Simulated assay, not measured.
Amino acid sequence: MDLEKLGWIASPFNPNKPDPRFILYDDIGREILIQASKESSRIFYIYGKVGMGKSTLALWMSEVAKAYDLEPILIHGGRLYDPEIVKEKLKTIFKGPGFFRWLINLIRRKKTINYLVIVDDVTEIEDRNFFEKLVGIIDHPKIHASVCLFGNKKLEEWPYREVFTNRRIIVYELKKPSKDKILKMIESRVESVGGSGYGPLTLEEIFDIIERNETIRDILSALEIKIMEKLRAGQI
């Protein structure tokens, strides 16, 4: 893409890079964070189609969790899943917070630490031992923790659902956002790279792309392709 013609410093529509600055489901994220901050041992399951924005929401929640007095632990599933890294991350729950976090809690006179374990691409993890460890953390009498799982399958279709048998799981489905939300996201992305409005795209072109694509990733890919087509045709 010839970014110089557009005055952009980068492509705003990279479909393969989750960016929490352009969150579309912050309402769901805040609802979960509020619930987890009020009561521990909760299990949340968020599912949706591949490319709907689950990883972006997981990243966003991990970044803002401390504002809700939650200590986030983000674990990546899928091809990024590494049992050794996960083991070290879960150890921090038993060790307690670092010195500065401990000092902040002391100043606030906060005696307990509420952890939120956020697991992205959970349906791509084939490690029963990991899920049993999560149950152990939730059940531990001296640990205050909740778990937020992000998957591509419905809860009843997930093979490791049975590890959490007899436990209440709060389920959320990520659906295609409204046109207004998507338009605001597009505008924010264009502004982030030095552009304004919707860049070289017309509202008619954007609405057509939104109508023809179901997921956020597909919409971003189609936007990028459309701009490349206009550049090649000399329309920009």
Rank of each mutant, 00 (worst) to 15 (best):
S37W: 07
D27T: 14
I93H: 04
I138C: 01
A58M: 09
H144K: 13
D82N: 15
K49V: 05
R108N: 08
T56I: 05
T112P: 00
I137L: 14
L90A: 07
K142S: 12
T112V: 10
I28Q: 08
H144D: 11
G29W: 09
M52V: 13
I32D: 00
Y68D: 06
D26G: 05
E88L: 13
K17F: 11
P141W: 15
H144R: 13
P20D: 12
P18R: 13
E126L: 11
V64N: 06
T112Y: 13
D19K: 12
K91G: 02
D19W: 11
I143K: 07
A65E: 03
G78W: 15
I137W: 03
Y68K: 08
V119F: 04
K111I: 09
I137E: 02
S146Q: 06
I125M: 04
L74C: 06
A67W: 09
Y25P: 00
K95R: 15
T123H: 06
Y68T: 09
I113G: 01
I107Y: 11
K110L: 07
F99A: 11
F99N: 04
L70R: 03
V119S: 00
S37A: 15
A36I: 07
L59A: 07
A145L: 09
D27E: 14
I104A: 11
E63K: 15
I85E: 12
D120I: 10
V50Q: 11
D27V: 12
V117Q: 03
T56W: 06
F22C: 07
Y68I: 08
E88P: 00
N114Q: 07
G98A: 05
K110T: 09
K95F: 12
N16G: 09
L116G: 00
H140C: 05
G29T: 13
Y45I: 04
G98W: 08
K133V: 06
G151I: 06
S41D: 11
H140R: 08
G98Q: 07
V86D: 00
G78L: 10
K95H: 13
H144P: 00
I113N: 06
I125S: 01
S37H: 09
S40W: 04
E126H: 15
R42F: 02
D27Q: 14
L103D: 00
R79F: 11
F22P: 01
I138H: 02
P20F: 11
R42Q: 14
T92W: 02
Y47R: 09
L103K: 14
L134E: 01
F99H: 08
C148A: 15
E31Y: 13
A145P: 01
P83S: 09
V86A: 15
V119K: 01
D26Q: 15
D120N: 14
I23N: 07
L74D: 02
I73N: 00
I104E: 12
I93E: 03
E88G: 01
N152I: 05
A65M: 09
N105E: 12
L149M: 15
L70I: 06
Y45D: 02
K91S: 09
N105A: 10
K17R: 13
A58C: 08
L74Q: 04
V64T: 13
L90K: 10
F130M: 03
F131V: 06
F94E: 12
